[in-house]
Write a protein that binds this DNA or RNA. Structure first.
Lengths: 379, 379
DNA sequence: TTGTAAGCGTTATCAG
DNA sequence: CTGATAACGCTTACAA
């Protein structure tokens, strides 16, 4: 059970250098408080003995871990299948590294997110996509650690950064409407509210008698899917499109499910001329399915995604999509958290909402019969 | 400076329950050693006081952190731009979560990877893509922590898992040769050996008088790029293709650079009929560039990638590529590490090498003039 | 079954 | 400028 010849401790170094433990500590942390000579002598001896301060002991004494957590609502394997998450993390990482913090990923531990938070040794955390209806949302607040919410306004009191999902979605729909489209399909994320029962039926779609007004259960939900749906529906409604005629399919945000959802739609006899997909992954899946069905994009079918992941500019045709500043979002969240970590102030910073932007590429064209001038994007 | 009303400690609970600190500790960790009643009474009081064991103190006492590190050669932002890394991490995460370990990402701290390792409180780590020529490779070994190498045989003595890069690359080249191609371009990663000087010139390509034999500086290097290059060149050489005629371009593994590299190649008058790209990102970039140049794939140009990222099956045309089991690789690495963490044995487990597999999709076709039967893939 | 006390390896406080 | 000594909060022999 020996810990491979026991680690060299600060006491060992102190003894070898015939100084006190504090002297050794100073030599490493605040050398200026020591005689320059003794300081370097101590460091030399320490190096000799291959001494490394134990990070855990240091944490305990300083009551500071130097690591911040990233709370994810699901296991990392599923989080990372979404390339968009990668760019968000990239943004976080850059800011964190600059401030000498390391990152720890915290996903539900045996089903419980709050348990995972409590076991983690972190100074604070960024909670990603923690929706308002999450059962543990209340406990998260009581963890006592500073945190910032991302893509969720679940706790309006707390610091948060998110994007303008609703506006972004609306701009996508508005654009298609301007292009003369009247027949739409919406590809939405699996609705998280209505339980896991629907999860297996992900590829099934439901023509839904969507409410003409934007209230009701769906409207209350506060997650990316619900917000984007509100944006789509509002635009469609304002354009006088009968919402009952809009096909809505729910699917997990993957390429395969996007393709499958569109195939199902098509097989069921639906013939939308435009598809509003809530993620680029879904949209690219639609592109693929369209190709197999020999539907020409954008001539016979327009599709617009959401996110603007790297690959969106490289599909065939390049994907029109709503750009979302993933890296910036991570960066902003981290800065907010750092501020809160350093100055204990700034408790009530207002929710920060970043802008989305419609990027028109090649996957969208004019609607049928409308040979109207190509209008510039609505936003 | 007050730590928001001082955290409740084990002593507080002990006092409130009029028991000893150990009793409280037992109540949480080994309740069976306590009278069932007292145990639950203690837990109730603890809950009342909102007591949470401090993870750092626990770490110090147990001399175990419950977290394992993932060492990355570069900052996380660049790591995560590679979707392949995401799937690798997914594999690691699944195995780690199952064993109740959390993950900490460790990237170079102010330029130094070893410094970052020392500051991290981890029980062990997985080093990803740590090439043999990394200046700190030696110190990493001396960290005293158990670790496993991934995609690098830099330290042959140590546990490692990697894939058969050379065989995979070779199978890709062999396949194209069988299809009748004789005129090749290779898109390689930026060679890490030759310093940052070339980094800015990433889009420049160099026709290189590659050695007919597979020795020399390039052959000694042990990183994915070098290994794959060996596989390509060996196949080409064995097929009697003049290696001096093979165009080789170096680029960072991104979509944009892949496209740019191919454009440059083309602009310089090179007209390969087949492209061997060392990653799917590069390959998809080539697909895009080809489209812009109005080269039909696969009729006029065949391209094969490496990795088989999710999107590869969804490009147009779907990408022929060498599949690499990313998730499995992560899983295998984690298991190896866990074994080493638990039983202190298994020091000398042999390097584990996972198989690659050529996946033929639509981006490859017959070479010019060769109307030969489409042969099944070589592997 | 429960309590006592000795660590774990630092940093921080406060005299000298 | 330097050195004891007391935290830090928990686990774990060992004792009772």
């Amino acid at each position: 059970m020996r810990r491979s010849a026991r680690r060299t401790t600060i006491a060992d170094v102190a003894r070898a250098a015939s100084v006190s433990k504090s002297a050794v500590s100073f030599a490493f942390n605040t050398p200026e408080r020591l005689n320059a000579e003794t300081a370097s002598r101590i460091r030399a001896i320490a190096a000799d003995l291959n001494y490394r301060p134990d990070p855990v002991a240091r944490m305990l004494a300083q009551r500071r871990t130097g690591t911040i957590g990233i709370l994810t609502p699901q296991g990392l394997d599923v989080m990372f299948t979404n390339p968009y998450f990668g760019s968000f993390v990239g943004g976080i990482a850059t800011a964190a590294e600059a401030a000498d913090y390391t990152l720890q990923f915290i996903s539900p531990l045996r089903g419980s997110l709050i348990r995972a938070v409590h076991q983690a040794s972190i100074d604070g955390f960024v909670a990603y996509g923690l929706s308002a209806d999450h059962p543990e949302i209340g406990q998260v607040r009581q963890s006592g650690l500073p945190f910032v919410l991302v893509d969720s306004t679940a706790l309006p009191e707390e610091a948060s950064v998110s994007v303008d999902d609703e506006v972004g979605a609306r701009s996508a729909a508005d654009y298609l409407i301007e292009m003369g489209h009247r027949s739409f399909a919406i590809l939405a994320f699996e609705p998280p509210l209505h339980g896991a029962a629907d999860a297996s039926a992900a590829r099934a779609f439901s023509r839904r008698p969507a409410q003409p007004d934007v209230t009701g259960a769906e409207a209350d939900a506060d997650n990316a899917s619900a917000r984007r749906m509100r944006g789509y529906l509002a635009a469609l409604h304002d354009a006088g499109i009968e919402l009952a005629d809009v096909a809505v399919a729910y699917a997990a945000s993957t390429l395969a499910q996007g393709a499958a959802a569109f195939r199902d739609l098509y097989a069921a006899g639906l013939r939308p001329t435009a598809v509003l997909a809530m993620s680029d992954a879904l949209a690219i899946g639609v592109l693929r399915a369209a190709r197999e069905l020999e539907l020409r994009v954008p001539d016979e079918l327009s599709v617009v995604g959401f996110d603007d992941i790297d690959i969106a500019a490289f599909t065939d045709p390049p994907l029109t999509t709503v750009h979302q500043p993933g890296r910036l979002k991570g960066d902003a969240a981290m800065r907010l958290l750092l501020g809160r970590l350093q100055h204990r102030e700034a408790e009530g910073s207002p929710p920060r909402r970043l802008a989305t932007k419609l990027i028109v590429r090649g996957s969208t064209g004019c609607g049928p019969g409308s040979r109207q001038e190509v209008a510039p994007p609505a936003v």
